[in-house]
Design a protein around this nucleic acid. Structure first.
Lengths: 331, 331
DNA sequence: CTGTTAGCGCTTTCAT
DNA sequence: ATGAAAGCGCTAACAG
């Protein structure tokens, strides 16, 4: 009963316009139910008084908030900002507000955030969720949920298939005459890593190329740089890295070792988060994160107004983006 | 009167526990007003029933939402994600939810977002706001407002002084024996650019160095790369770039031109958004965006519980971060 | 087409 | 220490 009461209320407008409160409400939400005259008069009075509908009261009454929550493991991971941005822009078209949550890669934190948000949103989008399948199902039972890059049966999800682009990259390398390559792996627990590793292996085998895998615990610039000696020792002429950051590290390592790219060695990254901002510009695999963000929001809207929709599984194919770090196999 | 009614309400808990609704409310918000026994019993019953306080109803009644909004010009600009992240983590400590808005660099969009958010937040944080002073004052009159990197008298603000770090960078260069340098400028309309440009000029003059300025309309990797011929023609032995992206482009351009960094030429970036992910790792100026995000939120909290606070002007100094792209002046 | 009347779920005086 | 009751501002039957 305290708190800042800063607004003109519907009652004041009603009194000033000489109508019932419900009419004022209708003037804003269902103007077709009122005579045009009345609507105009009410709107004029409202304008004059500086009336602004109270979002909270409306939400309490209707159960509709016009909010969604988007939770990501790490806002600062360059993969997410474009996704966040596009989800946001799409939300804007629907006049929705978006809460952003940072789970800090921790399931517990993510769980907490979902709880904090769920009372004031229509639905949630979980990107690369760290939650267990059980928790996801539990939350999905309470609120519409859309997943990005997480494949849980029964929950609507948008999946980015980096495998398709990686396969293209391998084919691209094969065409350039490379016969032996190495895949520099990312975190073994990662869905994306498994996907990429498998794609490299499968398409390389199909094209008669040799593949070796070099593991790196964390996908970092340093890890990529450190992998260079092993890569050179492998005898391969090209490398596909788990992500762009590692590829960038590899580029640096090669440069240090005096190996020219792409003349003597070819490098392919993954996720296209660097733009063309390396020298030479990095050949990589597109990420589709922009589409994923947009699609996730749209899907959530669909789920919202037809709660029958469940278990949608929307796969986004990726492609190789050929730039300057891949060239004909040496010799 | 429709909408999803998915919750156990306070009334149900009250009945099940054999107490008044107000007691249930107090058990959650003012347990000290009740006997410990009662509190325990109520909490147990609530737990058992799966009661969760309705955020919206509470907000309507108290006028307190526990939400803040953070608006940035572009989520995908690498300067902002760390800031967003830290503001978020700080908000988390206070159990606040944060709305994120992307103004897309447009004042009109920003204005719209502020309007959309302001009904359901305690206050707002505007980072690098594109709004006019008038609009900012107008909004600040309705809701507590904190600005980041925008200096408007009468409004609490956090300013990142990149000038201090740039001056350090120039001193660092002078110590290395450089006598002539060029500043590759960013957008002329930018507050930061003016700040940095002036710092370079001032400290260079003080140290007896020559400075030339090369302008670039947009701060991009390409712009940096394109500036290389002009930089080389200038006869300078070091360059300070408006931001890291341009510095990275300059690095690429130098590499293409066969100029070795830092042996033959020194390069300093600004904002430290690349981490050490270039080769050689870039010497740059710290950005303090993490502190800015955190400080902005804290300041907002301060403003909230002591509305007397206004016109706080909190300046964050920056520093040069010496890495691998600066070395002794050649010859 | 418009007014009357219940709520939505919670907090907060005011009593007791 | 606890209960009763009056809202917070808006929406949505239900009447007319």
């Amino acid at each position: 009963m305290t708190g800042r009461r800063d607004g003109v209320t519907i009652s004041q407008v009603a009194k000033a316009a000489g109508v019932a409160r419900s009419s004022v409400s209708r003037a804003f939400t269902r103007p077709d139910m009122l005579s045009q005259q009345t609507v105009e008069r009410i709107l004029a009075v409202a304008e004059e008084l500086g009336y602004v509908p109270n979002h909270t009261a409306r939400a309490l009454s209707t159960g509709r908030h016009g909010n969604v929550a988007l939770i990501v493991p790490d806002v600062a991971n360059p993969f997410f900002p474009p996704l966040i941005r596009s989800a946001q822009m799409e939300a804007d078209r629907f006049d929705f507000c978006v809460f952003l949550g940072n789970s800090d890669e921790k399931a517990k934190q993510e769980d907490k955030l979902v709880g904090r948000f769920s009372g004031q949103v229509e639905g949630l989008i979980l990107a690369s969720s760290r939650l267990s399948d059980e928790r996801i199902h539990a939350h999905a039972a309470l609120r519409p949920l859309v997943l990005i890059n997480r494949d849980v049966a029964g929950i609507s999800r948008i999946l980015i298939d980096s495998g398709s682009g990686v396969s293209e990259a391998v084919a691209h390398l094969a065409e350039l005459g490379h016969r032996s390559l190495v895949y520099v792996a990312g975190p073994s627990s990662s869905w994306s890593n498994a996907q990429r590793r498998m794609a490299v292996r499968k398409s390389a085998t199909a094209l008669g190329l040799e593949v070796q895998t070099i593991a790196a615990a964390v996908p970092s610039f340093q890890a990529g740089r450190n992998a260079v000696p092993a890569i050179r020792a492998s005898g391969a002429t090209a490398v596909v890295a788990f992500d762009d950051l590692m590829a960038q590290g590899i580029l640096a390592g090669m440069s240090e070792a005096g190996v020219r790219v792409p003349e003597e060695f070819s490098v392919v990254g993954c996720d296209d988060v660097l733009g063309a901002a390396t020298y030479p510009p990095l050949t990589t695999v597109s990420n589709r994160s922009v589409e994923a963000g947009k699609a996730a929001f749209s899907l959530l809207m669909d789920v919202l107004d037809s709660s029958a929709i469940r278990d949608v599984r929307y796969m986004l194919e990726t492609h190789v983006v050929v730039r300057g770090t891949t060239g004909p196999a040496p010799r």
